[in-house]
């Protein structure tokens, strides 16, 4: 029935089988070792720290950086702006998808805007945005613009694939709107929303940092990357890249955990309160 055989527009490609978990953890460490070894071999072959630094150099630089107060201030600066752009896009994208689902004329009005945002190169947006807004807020806008089409398309898809037979049932029994949303619409949209969030988070970090590298707002990760490149401090360039990857992955995990937590509430586990209680 509802949502049983649905495929989100953006797949995160994660199996839900619990039996795979020990295997995945067991596989992760050797895989990590393999790529680390690959990096070391490549480093030895290239043998030029301008092009590729050793993993231990990056580790040493990271240890040095984390001890500096500015390091954390830089992370907070970029994190707050990119996350603000992401969250605003998640909210506005969802709202636009709901409006488009409720009204065909509104859908016709919104669709071209989303298509234009989706098709415009991120570099064009960054350059245009630099004319309109302060460099320090550039990453907010760019993250927002990168995320909104993905959220919109997926939430809309989730809404339109809501089980029609369940909606008819709700109509016959005159189930109120709040209960319909909670019991029928949300479970239908959640898989699509989760996929969109998972994919768009990566994009939003990439685009947000790219915007900072071009806009060079003072105190941002983008500025540190730019300076590392200008002064050829390659170990810092690598260290900051590792930091960006780690923040992006951690934030994605946190958001998905939060969504899963909310989803449990709509699933009514043994201890949860039945609808209407």
């Amino acid at each position: 029935m509802a949502g049983s055989d649905k495929k989100p527009l953006l797949s995160i490609g994660k199996g839900s089988s619990k039996s795979c978990k020990p295997l995945r953890v067991g596989v992760k460490i050797p895989v990590l070792c393999f790529w680390l070894l690959f990096w070391i071999i490549l480093y030895k072959i290239i043998n030029n720290e301008i092009f590729l630094v050793a993993p231990w150099t990056v580790a040493k630089t990271l240890i040095r950086l984390v001890q500096q107060k500015e390091f954390w201030e830089t992370i907070i600066f970029s994190f707050l702006r990119i996350v603000l752009g992401f969250l605003s896009a998640a909210m506005v994208g969802t709202l636009l998808a709901v409006l488009a689902y409720m009204s065909k004329p509104l859908k016709e009005l919104i669709n071209p805007l989303i298509t234009v945002i989706k098709a415009t190169p991120v570099a064009s947006f960054i350059i245009l945005a630099l004319l309109w807004i302060k460099g320090s807020n550039l990453s907010v806008l760019i993250s927002f613009l990168m995320v909104i089409p993905m959220i919109y398309a997926n939430v809309y898809q989730g809404l339109t694939t809501t089980d029609r037979k369940l909606l008819e049932m709700a109509e016959v029994f005159k189930i109120n709107r709040f209960r319909r949303i909670r019991a029928i619409y949300i479970p239908s949209v959640i898989p699509y929303f989760t996929s969109a969030i998972s994919v768009s988070l990566g994009f939003c970090w990439k685009a947000g940092i790219a915007a900072e590298v071009i806009g060079i707002p003072t105190g941002s990760i983008g500025e540190r990357l730019y300076e590392a490149k200008i002064y050829l401090v390659i170990d810092e360039l690598y260290a900051w890249t590792v930091v960006i990857i780690l923040i992006s992955i951690t934030f994605e995990k946190l958001v998905l955990y939060f969504i899963k937590f909310l989803r449990l509430d709509t699933h009514y586990s043994d201890k949860s309160k039945p609808i209407g209680e």
Binding site: I175, Y268, P274, I275
Partner: peptide, 25 residues
């Protein structure tokens, strides 16, 4: 006020039996 038992059950699969019933009550 109409209540129905449809040909294909039309239950909300992720909800338990009690919640399915309470949803319409």
């Amino acid at each position: 006020r109409v209540a129905a038992c449809f040909q294909e059950d039309r239950l909300i699969e992720h909800l338990d039996a009690i919640s399915n019933v309470k949803l319409v009550c």
